[in-house]
């Protein structure tokens, strides 16, 4: 079963050819990070335009690198949502056109279910049930993946996504984009106990998240002590590394605690994580420690497959096909910005 996966939900234009959900024949990602960097984040219209320019070359390259032609494919898979509608439409339209012209089935994939496949691309998938923390710039949710292969959201953010908090704090500190990578790098040289930022746990027993409070706390900190002073122009009254480490520790504390609480509540033995923030070194380190201590088996994606990619879409499409067969009436598919 040879599937071409296409992903354009945010700022990566990606295509990949994957055999039977496991064997990666090609994995092409055209990133727009450099395009959006001056804006401190993704600009939707700009993203859509860049996707239009990139989509066909990216698909062609994915087929070339896989050493196959479009006619060899058994199906085309594409991200239907959630994401930016304009961006999603580019991938969806290309996928529909391709599937129609080739007379091949089209599979519509939920972006978050795609992410959840990323941890199992290079290793055996554990037996369900398991808990998966999907954490990125647009999402922070805990999923319970059940033995029938479906997933249920058991907790999610009530305000900001964790990655969004990283981006906005980086913006407050004048650090640039993508904020998560920059803060992670600074934090490695900082003291995580230097400043006590709030950990929002919400009401007892809740598996939901809230990261708006910590963003506000950093905003207030910057208001009080000033933003970092550029080198040679004076002295910053605190160590930027300490601030980054303290902020990161507060975010990671809550992510880890809630994930473990979910694992305990649903009595699972396996925990997975996925999404851009799953590449964060401190989150990986803390999850490893805590899961080992509790004898939970942890599954993390390779760094490359934490961020958006099309391999995970092709892999998720294969599982979807095993479970439900092909999507009926694929040409009627529409992009969906928010999926519940």
């Amino acid at each position: 079963m040879l599937i071409l996966g296409i992903e354009t939900s945010c700022d990566e234009t990606a295509a990949a050819v994957v055999r039977s959900g496991r064997e990666i024949l090609s994995d092409v990602v055209a990133s727009q990070i450099a395009v959006h960097s001056p804006y401190g984040g993704v600009v939707p219209e700009l993203a859509s335009r860049k996707h239009v320019e990139a989509i066909l070359p990216v698909i062609r390259e994915a087929l070339d690198r896989a050493g196959c032609c479009a006619g060899d494919l058994d199906a085309v898979a594409v991200t239907q949502g959630p994401g930016l509608v304009g961006a999603l439409l580019v991938g969806l339209s290309a996928a529909k056109g391709l599937a129609y012209a080739l007379d091949k089935p089209l599979l519509a994939v939920n972006h978050l279910e795609g992410h959840m496949e990323a941890a199992f691309l290079d290793k055996e998938r554990p037996e369900e049930p398991f808990i998966c923390l999907v954490v990125s710039g647009g999402h922070t949710s805990l999923y319970l993946v059940t033995p029938d292969g479906s997933s249920r959201c058991v907790g999610s953010t009530r305000d900001d996504a964790a990655g969004e908090a990283y981006d906005k704090v980086a913006k407050l500190l004048g650090l640039g984009y993508p904020g998560g990578v920059i803060i992670d790098r600074l934090a490695r040289r900082g003291n995580p106990a230097a400043f006590d930022f709030p950990r929002s746990r919400l009401e007892k027993g809740s598996l939901d998240f809230s990261f708006s409070g910590i963003k506000t706390a950093v905003a207030y900190f910057v208001k009080r002590y000033g933003p970092p002073v550029p080198e040679g122009k004076g002295e910053t009254p605190y160590r930027l590394e300490d601030l980054a480490a303290s902020f990161q520790e507060a975010v990671v504390d809550v992510l880890v605690e809630k994930t473990l609480e979910a694992a305990e509540r649903y009595r699972v033995r396996h925990v997975a994580t996925a999404g851009g923030v799953a590449a964060n070194s401190r989150l990986r380190e803390r999850l490893e420690e805590e899961c080992a201590y509790r004898r939970l088996q942890l599954h993390v994606p390779s760094i490359r497959h934490c961020t958006d990619n099309a391999v995970m879409i092709a892999a998720a499409a294969y599982r979807l096909w095993l479970r439900e067969g092909f999507t009926p009436d694929p040409l009627d598919l529409d992009a969906v910005s928010r999926m519940l």
Binding site: C10, P44, L84, G138, R158, D159, A161, E164, S212
Partner: peptide, 12 residues
């Protein structure tokens, strides 16, 4: 139904 940040989706 929590009102979440629309930064990512722009319009909710």
């Amino acid at each position: 139904i929590p009102v979440t940040s629309p930064t990512f989706t722009i319009i909710n």
